[in-house]
Amino acid sequence: MPSAGTPTAAPRRGGRRMRPSRLLFVLITVGLPMVLYLGLVIWPFLQAIYYSLTNWGGFSSSMDFIGLDNYKAIFSDDVFMKALRNNVILAILVPLVTVVLSFVLATMVTVGGSTTGAVRGLKGSSIYRVVSFFPYTIPAIVIGLIWAQMYDPSKGIVNGLLTHLPFGLGDRFNSFAWLGETATAMPASIFVIVWGFVGFYMVLFVAAIKGIPAELYDAARIDGAGRLRTMFSVTLPMIRETVQTAYIYLGVLALDAFVYMAALNPTGGPDNSTLVMSQDLFKTAFSQGQYGRASAMGVVLAAVTLLFAALVFGVNRLLGGKSDK
């Protein structure tokens, strides 16, 4: 219709051969991103995999091919295995806690309000939304540094408040090293990550819940469903895709976690209890000069991340298949 004036944009009926302008269009829209993708994403990946099979030290162009020795070395290295384990713990707990918490909060501010009249959130919900989104606007490294100070055993605000607890409870927090005890270092670090992300995912879920037709809630309410029942039987199934997406992003973030962990516990925490793979990778490359081995760690990290994403997709499909019926 509008193409009538321009002969080059003729209808494609019967024409299997591309016209030059169309070819140009395809090259620009598909070819250019493809080249960028191959050059900046795929090629470095392949290079990393290649380096992981060498003993490259990082400071010369010479390296020997050593097969899978790097992988053997890192899988028999208890420090790396501990870092891998910590990453798995993070990948399980961080998304779970964040998603549950932000889903509950999102429900409260959108559909958790009064049960009479139109479906709506709690009073003053926009204030809660702003307040809880606020941490997300602060860069991760700043969050890490602020919390590292707040957790300081002698002068941090956390112990400053806790030591005033009554009945002698407060004494237990005198100079208590939140980031220095094996039992608390990891939970304290997870708390910081969750604190930083709950607001963002709450807003994400709020947007998804707003897209659910109000009639569904009205119908559920007429049928006698309470708040909890509505949450699990209406809200959750309707925003399942968003929850899955949130789960994957948070998992990828937890598998990296470099910035938070490096700011909170640059040395890996007591007994390496907060060391993550990316920190071990950084140390192996830059302070021990074993770039080949560090590349192998990177490859393992990438593989674990892909595996995690596949797992979340798989679980969602399994659960989704049931509720679709």
Binding site: W56, G58, A285, S295, G298, T305
Partner: peptide, 19 residues
Amino acid sequence: LRAALAAGITLPISGALAS
């Protein structure tokens, strides 16, 4: 997120690219 992850992995490689 992906860029951040990729940065983590490609850090050791940047040198070789430069080479």
